[in-house]
């Protein structure tokens, strides 16, 4: 698999867009899911995941093929997500019009989300609860917990993805685990 990915990247570097399409469809779920967990909603997740793939394409020449492409993608996606979280306006009102929709506001979003939730509440209640608890962590712990336990990267890979020393990764993962332990102990 790694070899196929590497070959595709070489083609993309030569300017072949259709090779990039294969890469996007291969990684789309992982990157989208990562953004969703970082941002907590589908709309921003799609927006940022898309932006991440576009950035990766535009900057493909700065990517070193000897390294892992997935780490590089996660790095772009994580940085973009954290940027978005920082820029998020405190006045994120429910009646603000949702970008890219026509006259839809957050109320209608909640409604549609609520409808699908009712159907699957039996199976997904706990899963969603856990997701919510992870989303409530401060971003610097959240990103590491997600990368470690949901995307299953090693501590060393996480330190590369986030470009922070491995010691810092460990400190944050300890704090993240403790924070989650407190939030999930009653489940």
């Amino acid at each position: 698999m790694e070899q196929i990915i590497r070959e595709k990247i070489i083609l993309v570097k030569k300017g072949d867009q259709s090779a990039y399409e294969d890469l996007v469809s291969f990684y789309q779920n992982k990157i989208y899911q990562h953004c969703y967990r970082m941002l907590g909603n589908a709309h921003e997740a799609e927006d940022i995941a898309q932006e991440a793939f576009i950035r990766a394409y535009v900057n493909i020449h700065s990517f070193d093929e000897k390294r892992k492409f997935s780490s590089w993608l996660y790095r772009i996606a994580t940085n973009l997500s954290i940027d978005r979280l920082r820029k998020r306006k405190p006045d994120y009102f429910l009646d603000a019009e949702v970008k890219g929709t026509d006259g839809l506001d957050m109320y209608s979003q909640l409604q549609s989300e609520g409808a699908s939730l009712v159907e699957e509440v039996e199976n997904n209640e706990l899963q969603r609860y856990i997701h919510t608890k992870i989303s409530e962590l401060p971003p610097k712990y959240r990103s590491i917990i997600i990368l470690r336990y949901l995307e299953e990267f090693s501590l060393k890979e996480i330190s590369e993805i986030l470009d922070i020393p491995i010691g810092t990764v460990k400190t944050r993962i300890h704090r993240g685990r403790e924070a989650l332990r407190k939030r999930l102990r009653h489940v």
Partner: peptide
């Protein structure tokens, strides 16, 4: 528990 968090598809 973390590992059973909800999954999302693009």
């Amino acid at each position: 528990l973390i590992q059973s968090a909800e999954r999302f598809e693009a």
